[in-house]
Design a protein around this nucleic acid. Sequence first.
DNA 1: AGATGTACTTAGCAACACTAAGGAGCAGGA
DNA 2: TCCTGCTCCTTAGTGTTGCTAAGTACATCT
Lengths: 106, 106
Amino acid sequence: MEGLTELLKGALEGIVLQHIAQGETYGYEITKYLQDLGLEDIVEGTVYTVLLRLEKQGLLDVERRKSNLGPQRKFYTLNAAGEDYLTNFWAKWDFLSGKMTQLRKA
Amino acid sequence: MEGLTELLKGALEGIVLQHIAQGETYGYEITKYLQDLGLEDIVEGTVYTVLLRLEKQGLLDVERRKSNLGPQRKFYTLNAAGEDYLTNFWAKWDFLSGKMTQLRKA
DNA sequence: AGATGTACTTAGCAACACTAAGGAGCAGGA
DNA sequence: TCCTGCTCCTTAGTGTTGCTAAGTACATCT
């Protein structure tokens, strides 16, 4: 799906957070996961910038450990702030989503 | 609903376009309509900047006519390009929306 | 040695929602 | 008559965000 960029703004943070909420993970894996999901235009660079931003916002706990293949990985986990953020994110998404449906069939 | 700004990016163009698709209208009316819908943080200034952008992109036909009260109005109608854009917008929205649901219950 | 796959960082860009500030037309009441 | 409030639009500028590009680094296989 092309031209999804603008629509992803604001949503991507939630998407990444939601995936991390399902279990400790790291950037490279997240990228693969999203591409498997069908969000193929979300590439590595994008995911890493989002992760750094989320980390700076204090929504994630980070641990650097070595991998069995390749260089070290940065493992991310949601902390309490992250969970709050995520809950709030879905509330906003549902709100907007509802309005969109309303508008569409008006 | 606070903090909707980022989520609105990309969606707002579609929202405005969708409302215009339901019949000729103008900026001030669109603003009121959205606020009635419950999107209260979308204020005048925002709507007008969106309209100008859509107009520049050639998605809207414009006609300036005088109003029975207040200054002249700029009436907007969707043209063919606008309709295409709108169809495409909903396709993208449905796509993302579907992925969000998938991700959430994963 | 070189290629391939894994894994992360940084600097900078473009698009968008939003803000701020203003102007202009009309109505009604003080 | 003034002036307050409502209608209606414009322009310049800001901050956030997804994205790009270029680079670094480790491991494995040929």
